[in-house]
Amino acid sequence: MKANQFIAKVRENAGANLAPRFLFTLALLTSLSLALFSTPSHAESRAAAVANAELLMQIEQMQQEIKALRNMVEQQENTLSKMQTEQRNRYLDLDQRAQEYAKRILVLEETPLSKPPSQPTAPIKATPPEVSGVNDQQAYNKAYAHVPEQRFEEAIASFQAFIREYPSSRLVGNAYYWLGEIYMAQNRTADAEKMFNAVVSNHPNSFKIADSKYKLGLIYARYGNNNKAKETMESVIAEHPREPAADLARNYLKK
């Protein structure tokens, strides 16, 4: 009798629209109440009620574990989606930049070096000797042609051969830069960092000096070193204000 009165009191206080979690609590209290208020002659019923309460607790625990697993899966899916988006953006950035600078690079690189004013009659320093009938400009163009077509492995091999065969060419810095771009697209971040650092440290007169510094800023951001990334972007803007890389750096700092 006392048990029925207790259950009726709980239901009356709960109301008609109970939340799912309160319903579970109510069921648990009901089972426990049956066990607590039953007479000794109802030992089996009491044991069954306790067993039911334990079962409900186990179900609740399983539901919480399932919810935690779902949250983990959702987080992993979000991380994977972010990585895929970043990878796709790098490919698009590579294609866009390759098309945008292709004409500019070729024009600048094919412009003959002027003779020093103080030595008008002195011959221009010759480019490195040709290998297999191909000069450094032709070898570089051949290697670069693989980049817009995303034939990355062939481009890597060609640029590496170019650096070995024409170590004194004024285009070596550009070759290191494109190796860095390709490694970035392949998520070989450490290798890309080495290539861009090679441009900055060893080829300061390269057409790709500003772009290499910008890419290093992105690499520092990828490492989680946001302060160094910010400093690098600011140096690109300060040292190369008219270069397209400076515009990219400004956009990065606005984020």
Rank of each mutant, 00 (worst) to 15 (best):
L92I: 10
L56G: 02
I66M: 08
E74S: 11
E60C: 02
A51R: 13
A43H: 08
T85A: 14
L55K: 10
Q64M: 07
Q75S: 14
L56D: 03
N78A: 14
A51G: 07
A68Q: 08
Y91R: 14
Q87L: 13
E86S: 08
N89F: 06
Q64D: 09
I59S: 05
Q76G: 01
M72E: 14
R46C: 04
M72Y: 05
V73L: 07
A43Q: 12
T85H: 04
Q61L: 06
Y91F: 14
Q64C: 03
N71P: 00
A43R: 15
A51K: 15
A51E: 13
E74A: 15
Q64V: 04
E60D: 14
R88Q: 15
A43M: 10
Q76V: 07
E65S: 05
V50Q: 04
R70V: 00
A53Y: 00
A49N: 11
Q64L: 11
Q61K: 10
Q76R: 10
N52D: 09
E77I: 07
E60S: 09
M57K: 03
A49H: 01
L55D: 08
Q87V: 07
M83S: 06
M72Q: 14
A43N: 14
L69Q: 10
E86N: 11
M57S: 07
N52R: 13
I59N: 06
N71W: 01
Q61I: 04
R46K: 15
A51D: 13
E44G: 04
A49L: 02
Q58S: 14
Q64R: 12
K82Q: 13
M62V: 08
E54P: 01
M83R: 11
Q75I: 01
A43V: 08
R70T: 04
Q58L: 10
E44I: 15
N78T: 11
Y91S: 09
A49Y: 03
E65Q: 15
M57C: 06
A48R: 10
E54N: 06
N52C: 04
K82T: 12
L80R: 14
N71G: 06
Q75R: 14
L55H: 08
A48Q: 12
L80H: 04
K82P: 00
S45F: 10
K82D: 10
A48N: 12
T85Y: 06
L56V: 01
E77T: 07
A51C: 05
N78Y: 01
E74V: 05
Q84R: 08
Q76N: 09
T79Q: 15
E65W: 01
R88W: 07
E74D: 12
E54Y: 04
N89Y: 02
S45E: 13
A49C: 14
Q61Y: 03
R46F: 03
